[in-house]
Design a protein around this nucleic acid. Sequence first.
DNA 1: TCAACTTTATTAATTTTTTTATTAATTAAT
DNA 2: ATTAATTAATAAAAAAATTAATAAAGTTGA
Lengths: 412, 412
Amino acid sequence: MASKRKKVNFELFSLGSSSGVAYKNKALKKQIIQFIDNRGSSSITELSKELTTSVPKTTALVGELITEWLLQDEGKIDSTGGRRASVFGLVSDACFFLGVDVKKYHINVGLMDFQKRMVTHKDKLPFKMENTAESLKKLIQLIKDFISHSQIERARILGCGINLTGRINQHTGHSYSFYHFKEEPLAEVIQQEIGIPAYLENDSRSMAFGEFYSGELSSERNVLFVNLDYGIGLGIVVDGKIYYGRSGFSGEFGHIPLFDNEIICHCGKKGCLETEASGWALIRKFKERLEKGSSSSAVKKNTSASEITLEDIITAAKNEDTLCIELLSEIGEQLGKGLAVLINVFNPELIILGGTLSETGDYIRLPARSVLNKFSLSLMNNDTSLRISRLGERAGVIGACLIARLKVINNT
Amino acid sequence: MASKRKKVNFELFSLGSSSGVAYKNKALKKQIIQFIDNRGSSSITELSKELTTSVPKTTALVGELITEWLLQDEGKIDSTGGRRASVFGLVSDACFFLGVDVKKYHINVGLMDFQKRMVTHKDKLPFKMENTAESLKKLIQLIKDFISHSQIERARILGCGINLTGRINQHTGHSYSFYHFKEEPLAEVIQQEIGIPAYLENDSRSMAFGEFYSGELSSERNVLFVNLDYGIGLGIVVDGKIYYGRSGFSGEFGHIPLFDNEIICHCGKKGCLETEASGWALIRKFKERLEKGSSSSAVKKNTSASEITLEDIITAAKNEDTLCIELLSEIGEQLGKGLAVLINVFNPELIILGGTLSETGDYIRLPARSVLNKFSLSLMNNDTSLRISRLGERAGVIGACLIARLKVINNT
DNA sequence: TCAACTTTATTAATTTTTTTATTAATTAAT
DNA sequence: ATTAATTAATAAAAAAATTAATAAAGTTGA
């Protein structure tokens, strides 16, 4: 049982800026952990090459990491032509990381172990995101409940990533769009309550990171993740790292002025991409079409057209409702124009469509792709693949866990 | 005299992937050079802290670098309360780097020393950029001439950066838009001819890098450079490094589909930013206005309206020609809409307006700023300053030299 | 002006790391 | 099946780096 081990040495993750051989050894051990984290279980020889330290030295360091319960011997690797090497990997239950994905009408929570495996998760816990102190209190309570149900002692949970919509300064821990009641960073407030270091992140960026790290393990280093929900978010991964911009407000893709319409966006401006290509736009268009006499299976007996949700439309589309499919195609086309902008500017290897709306798959992807090709240079759009998220609803929680994990391990 | 020293140890810059203490020392020495390169002349104590290596060890390494003619003792630093420390800096004439900026009607060439100082430069050498073998031959000849006039022995020039417009794959050394006559990378071809390692780069990226590294030495890490010429280019600096994208085609900002007009762009598509906010657009608008009866001092007796150049319009604007100023303001406004897109997506610390058109300064900057504020979220545009290039025409050559220099020093 | 304090540089002693050599484990070939 | 070849792990020897101590060069304040 996990509770039997008390010796795990977490100090490693918080090396101060000292010097001397003790410090150097700590840094080397951290490098070992990071290398194994990225490339999987490794042999002494591999580690020795990576760290440019001699084999005996590396052996000693790995030995220490094993007594500190951070690494474990995983047996011999398949032969490479001579004596088989022992490989060493992370101890899965050495420590854990929490991820909380806060949505409009529910939250997803999950717990990830040291080996990046989700050990527990609760999807779609009912919760209403409102900009009130009560809502925040409720959220914190839900997190606390999840922790106590998880049976994992709090001291072994080293970090908690929390996704919120809106403008987040990940660095300071401030959330500006929601729960901004005092000057103290929201991350700090939550940390005090749950007793675990908390890291705030914008939902789209978190999903981007989740998808990048665990959805696609190919060689892509520059990936854009488009979060299609009521609004449109963008997570940017440059050279394998999340891009933040000056104050962490990067990725306000939904509000680029791409259209010449007269529709007022939530942000107060006209012509934003969100006015034509988002979940809000979809609902607006849906209502407009109903008013013009169209019909749809999305409107059931018990719901009136005015209280239709995004989920309703998506479900209807999946059941091949003609109007919904038609509208999704329209949305996809408008989105394609926006994606063309991104391709021209970023020349990315991959654009991932995620978020609720992406559940409709090719209904939105194919029109987007075709318009995108029309509006971007062919030399460039040939380079970029456009894919639907593989993690789906899970991307957020996984991303949140991974961010917390990286924060702790890299001590940043 | 520079020619007296033959001992400079350039091997340092090409450390292979070996191991052992010899390799480690080489790597440490390289780190020392890089640190001093970034932070200026440093003392043993500072270096020792940076490398996390003991003072005696650092002293030995610095000693070696001095005998290798790469570092020099620059005397004592001002007191910090105790014995004054010796500081060590790069030997300025240890090696040199060439930069070539190829424009439509001229080239700029320059030579930079190890300390990042321009030692020689020739601005606006007459040259016509045409996509022919003769044009390329002429270009190479101009470079050769510059080298022989510079009086610096070729072996001390360790790299040559070359800026071209159009699509460049910096990594492979291919130029796709110009001089693409054989499969062999253009960089390779030029390198063979001039006998110096050549590095190709897109002009806007090069200018961005030049401006970033030597124009603004503040703390900005995320900077966008907009190259306003006949076309519109974009150089992206993320976390202090040039952003390339998948195949090095990033920054095709001029061709984002931002307008709903019917003007066919050079790229073959409609509605590109370039159709409204570029040098081409400026000239088109100018001609349209003349046809409608406007008059301008830009049209002199000897030039007809049909052969007016960008330079003419800029000069006229500087001489307060009403029509030109009016048109520049228009261009600025359209540009502002494009910049709003960039700000929303990147949340950059700084956007620099460079290139020929930027010489008009506030005539284009102020309208751009005001429209930009209108079209981007105020929380974000407050973060971003919009400045005119400080290096002006020089940005390209300086960037080219710096890129070659970095390539060599970082061995990438 | 001079002692007390700081910081840097150098040397000597000690610890740590790398090298080299040896042994062990495994595969491929005769 | 046995031997040669290959790779890994360990042990002992040699080399290298750090630490600690000391000297040198300044500054500051009574």
